[in-house]
């Protein structure tokens, strides 16, 4: 199948939005802006999922990531009251050049590897991932990956309890032994 230019154009726009938003996540002085830009990146990735015949994942991406996760970020930012502009000047000597150097090298390295060993050909549309996507994933989840799926329940539960325990405000000026005595009394 031949490469179609409108497709490539669409892809380029989405990628540009995603990468630009990702850069804004990193570069925004205000954490609230970062969170909003993160939401935009996650939307763009959801679009890419749809283009990649994964509508179910795109939906989950929108609901869980762009919805719940980003909202949670914003919630914490507001709760802690750190929605002010911050100083982006680096304080650790040599940290920024090293970080940028390494990230750049990583980008060059991975892109190089993809160019060298990856496939330059357009994607085959051999499988109908799009049409019965939800059934396919459901089949896999509840047969092949059933145990893994069920085990995810454990981290979810742990996370819920952990969040409660960690975020609970300790009563001030009381040592552990005293609170124990309270409990017994």
């Amino acid at each position: 199948m031949k490469t179609s230019w409108p497709d490539i154009l669409f892809f380029a726009i989405v990628c540009g939005i995603a990468l630009g938003a990702a850069l804004r996540v990193v570069l925004s002085k205000n954490a609230v802006h970062s969170a909003l830009m993160l939401a935009l990146t996650l939307f763009s990735v959801a679009v890419i999922f749809i283009a990649q015949s994964a509508p179910f994942l795109a939906a989950v991406q929108m609901i869980v990531y762009a919805g719940a996760v980003v909202v949670l970020f914003l919630f914490v930012i507001m709760l802690l009251g750190v929605d002010k502009n911050e100083d982006l000047r680096e304080t650790l000597r040599g940290q920024r050049p090293a970080a940028l150097g390494l990230a750049l090298l990583f980008a060059v390295g991975t892109v190089g590897v993809i160019r060298l060993y990856g496939s330059g050909a357009p994607q085959a549309e051999a499988i109908a991932l799009g049409a019965d996507n939800v059934q396919l994933i459901a089949d896999a989840l509840f047969t092949t990956y059933l145990y893994a799926f069920e085990i995810t329940a454990a981290p979810l539960l742990v996370a819920a309890i952990a969040a409660v325990v960690l975020a609970k405000r300790e009563r001030p000026a009381k040592s552990l032994s005293e609170s124990r005595e309270d409990g017994s009394a």
Binding site: L92, Q95, A99, L102, A103, L105, F106, G109
Partner: peptide, 18 residues
């Protein structure tokens, strides 16, 4: 500094690619 340690992780990733 966590960020310093992250440099090490990044370096490790690079070495893997290499």
């Amino acid at each position: 500094y966590v960020r310093n340690y992250a440099l090490g992780v990044a370096l490790g990733a690079l070495l893997l690619i290499g």
